[in-house]
């Protein structure tokens, strides 16, 4: 053991989340659905951690639990060493500043009636930045860092005037404007073409480097995870089936499920390389 181990950003111990009744009206029976079934993970400071799994495996649920948008039924989540279950009042507000989400769909996540400036500046207002000059400055910095520059040109725009990639950059700027320490990106490019996804991945890698932010990258695309992540965990039906260094998991998959994910990736076998 090293003498002074750096404190991890996030430690998850045996968490569970069960939805007791089916959301829908016509369920045959109201059986419980265990969306997260005893997950333990540790995300180190400054790393990009990938959570990879198929649809319905529990990725978004895990993200929502980490954001404390929902409560766990069992286990413990520690953020920078502190249990988040009891957070209230000022402590909760501070947590909400330090942990941010980049949502999946830039077409639905941005308010169509808010200009890009208002979209990015809104979190600043919520977190009590009163000076409008300070807000302008921070919003401009965030937009620039997200690759929307000159920022002032984008301030008056509305989401429908931006391309898909630009919208996702605006959503990233909104998530980054409060200088969070931990950011969860939930399938941030599944709606975008390869050229745009690639620039978004590079942007995320860049933000990690320049701002030291810790990233949880949620995806079902192993190729993207390999490109961006130091370590990945593969989730299947609410359980982690495998985790390790990205290269290692992809080159030496230890579970049938990971192998199935790898085999389902598009390949261009018809190209005579």
């Amino acid at each position: 053991m090293p003498d002074t181990p750096a404190e991890p950003m996030v430690q998850i111990q045996g968490i569970k989340k069960t939805y007791s009744e089916d959301r829908s009206l016509f369920a045959r029976s109201a059986q419980a659905l265990t969306a997260i079934d005893g997950v333990s993970l540790c995300i180190e400071k400054g790393e990009v951690f990938g959570l990879v799994g198929a649809s319905g495996s529990g990725k978004t649920t895990l993200g929502r639990l980490l954001l404390k948008l929902e409560e766990i039924d069992a286990g413990q989540i520690r953020f920078q060493g502190k249990d988040i279950s009891g957070l209230k009042g000022a402590a909760l507000k501070d947590f909400r500043r330090r942990v941010q989400l980049i949502p999946q769909d830039p077409y639905q996540s941005l308010n169509p009636y808010m200009s890009i400036f208002d979209t990015v500046a809104e979190p600043l207002i919520i977190h009590g930045i009163r000076s409008s000059e300070a807000r302008r400055q921070k919003a401009a910095q965030a937009l620039d860092a997200a690759g929307l520059s000159p920022a002032a040109d984008f301030f008056p725009s509305y989401p429908h005037q931006l391309s898909g990639g630009q919208r996702q950059r605006a959503a990233i700027a909104r998530a980054m404007v409060l200088s969070p320490e931990f950011v969860i990106a939930d399938e941030p490019t599944s709606m975008l073409d390869a050229t745009i996804s690639f620039t978004i991945f590079k942007l995320l890698a860049d933000l990690r480097k320049t701002q030291g932010v810790t990233l949880l990258f949620i995806t079902h695309d192993l190729a993207a995870a390999r490109f961006l992540c130091d370590r990945i965990a593969v989730i299947y039906k609410g359980q982690i089936v495998e985790s390790g260094l990205s290269e290692q998991v992809i080159n030496n998959p230890g579970s049938d499920y990971t192998r199935a994910l790898i085999n389902a990736q598009p390949r261009f076998s018809f190209v005579n390389q």
Binding site: A194, S197, F198, T199, A223, F268
Partner: peptide
Amino acid sequence: REEVFEVPVHPYTRALLSSYLTIDGVFEIR
């Protein structure tokens, strides 16, 4: 399909292909 992948000519097509992440890394245009 083979022509577009093996000899992509339009710069946008080339950008699309060379930013395509595959499990073995970025797709390489021959």
